[in-house]
């Protein structure tokens, strides 16, 4: 019908008196990297969680690839092609890096009511998992326990897991948060290598990362999107500067 992969209309979510999302309209085109920025408490994670299906919106609709996915919960949306990374790294800490990615492959390889064959010796799960680990630069760490990976490596692992589900839309909630300069540079390089091939929504505080990666930026303030546009337009937008970027940017 059109080239919009994701169309969000009038999305609202309140927690008591707090309107965390207040009638959000938002689009993502096939293939674009769309960043969402905004001050702390603007409702960014609430917004992402409604897209991924972890939170139910009070109002509004979410269409994905021309289909209404609003009533679907997280696992069903994952099957449709959503994948997300969490603001606080969410991995299987007691499993190896390779196990983590193999589980993501398994989640999209039919049902898992298979009770006898050891999953760890199935090439159909392990081989592609290895490739995704290599892809994010964790090939050497495949057999390390996820809990023993550095913070930056854990975030890379999370991206590898998301990619292993072959998503049509990747939701990244602050992928470089809490990283050192070198680690965050590695992540930006990784995301940059996905750009164009992978449709992404990027929620991020790090303005360098956002302005170098995003095709379009939406600015979320107090649950409303106050501006959407190309990075240069957003930088020039006075309302945005006042609300968020401050004079130093």
């Amino acid at each position: 019908m059109n080239d919009m992969l994701l169309e969000v209309r009038g999305l609202s979510k309140s927690f008591g008196a707090l309107r965390a999302c207040d009638g959000i309209d938002f689009d993502v085109r096939e293939g674009e990297t769309h960043a969402v920025i905004g001050p702390n408490g603007a409702g960014k994670t609430t917004f992402i969680s409604q897209l991924s299906g972890d939170l139910r919106p009070d109002q509004g609709s979410i269409r994905f690839a021309g289909q209404d996915v609003t009533p679907l919960r997280a696992p069903a949306r994952a099957k449709k092609g959503f994948a997300r990374s969490f603001q606080i790294t969410s991995i299987y800490r007691e499993f190896t890096a390779l196990d983590n990615v193999a589980l993501a492959i398994q989640a999209h390889a039919g049902h898992s009511f298979r009770f006898w064959k050891p999953a760890r010796s199935e090439p159909a799960l392990r081989d592609p998992a290895r490739q995704y680990l290599d892809g994010v630069g964790l090939g050497e760490r495949a057999n390390a326990l996820a809990a023993n990976l550095s913070h930056g490596e854990q975030r890379q692992l999370e991206v590898a897991m998301a990619l292993a589900t072959k998503p049509r839309l990747l939701l990244l909630d602050e992928p470089v948060a809490g990283m050192g300069t070198e680690e965050s540079q590695r992540m930006v390089t990784l995301l940059d290598s996905l750009k164009g091939r992978q449709t992404m929504i990027l929620v991020e505080h790090d303005m360098d990362a956002v302005f170098s990666l995003a095709d379009r930026i939406s600015v979320l303030v107090y649950g409303r999107i106050i501006a959407t546009g190309a990075p240069l337009d957003i930088r020039a937008n006075t309302e945005v500067r006042q609300a968020y970027l401050g004079e130093d940017s």
Binding site: A74, P75, A83, I91, Y92, R93, A107
Partner: peptide
């Protein structure tokens, strides 16, 4: 180990 992660991968 991590229910939220499980749901997120499907």
């Amino acid at each position: 180990s991590n229910e939220a992660r499980s749901r997120a991968i499907g």
